[in-house]
Design a protein around this nucleic acid. Structure first.
Length: 261
DNA sequence: ATGCCGACCCGAGGTCGA
């Protein structure tokens, strides 16, 4: 089982990149963030031709998430349970696929909108912790993947790229990420690569890619039984060097799951 | 420290991202 997450920064601009990547890497599941379009404008046929089922939680211009699965999947949630009903930002998708529950998310950045913008990020993280706890209590085999907009530790960002007050670094942000991990989830990239930066994002500006001044903010967290099946996990850095790339690269996790024995 | 780039809206230039 190969599971991947990718913030594509517009699926319409990046559809050829994603198609080529799917043909090369052949994940069973790919969750996408920042598709930046409503469902009717999502180029679903491009991926359906490759055998993927496409589930979309779209939004015009901003945000928007989707899940591509090899073969059928069932969408169970189009918004994060526990958020106010009037919240219209498309940042969450939850699907059932081959016995797995897969969440794809685009967590609020929290640097815009002043105090209210940061409070929204924290409320979002609180609701996510609640959702994770609920699903883990139900003993689901769970993957929570996406753009978390959190650098959990100093190793996860190049020195000097972010001020210490940045919403990706602030203590309240990191405490909530730790709470998520402590609920029983494993960060597979860090588990297998304890001392590698393993960045998943490089800003378009200031030569960030050329200088390797990146951030690790995209994750695919695993529930306990899935973590025991971990085989490989890494960002696909090569995609950042492509022509007209997204500022994020895919993060790919391989699991020996379901186990034969 | 920062919006230098790139995407969105539209059909100029403002807004957003991390």
């Amino acid at each position: 089982m190969r599971i991947a997450t990718w913030n594509v920064n517009s699926i319409r601009v990046r559809q050829t990149h994603v198609r080529r990547w799917l043909e090369r890497v052949k994940p069973d599941v790919l969750v996408l963030q920042e598709i930046k379009c409503e469902a009717p404008n999502f180029p679903a046929a491009v991926f359906e031709e490759l055998g993927y089922t496409v589930e979309i939680v779209g939004q015009k211009a901003y945000n928007g998430v989707a899940a591509l699965t090899l073969g059928p999947a069932t969408i169970s949630h189009r918004a994060l349970p526990g958020l106010p009903a009037e919240d219209v930002q498309s940042r969450y998708i939850e699907i059932d696929y081959q016995g797995l529950t897969v969440i794809g998310l685009y967590l609020p950045n929290g640097n815009s909108g002043g105090d209210a913008g940061y409070a929204y990020k924290l409320a979002w993280m609180d609701a996510l912790c609640e959702r994770a706890t609920t699903l883990l209590t139900e003993d689901r085999d769970l993957v929570i993947a996406g753009d978390f907009n959190v650098c959990p530790a100093p190793l996860d960002f190049a020195a000097g790229t972010l001020p210490p007050t940045d919403a990706l670094l602030r203590p309240e942000t990191r405490a909530r990420f730790r709470r998520l991990i402590h609920s029983g989830l494993t960060d597979p990239v860090r588990a297998l690569h304890p001392s590698a930066p393993a960045y998943s994002f490089w800003d378009y500006q200031a030569g960030a890619w050329e200088r390797d001044r990146g951030l690790r903010i995209d994750f695919a967290l695993l529930s306990p039984k899935l973590a025991e099946c971990l085989v490989a996990a890494a960002p696909d850095r090569d995609e950042r060097g492509a022509e007209q790339p997204s500022d994020h690269v895919p993060v790919v996790v391989d699991l020996d799951w379901p186990r034969a024995s």
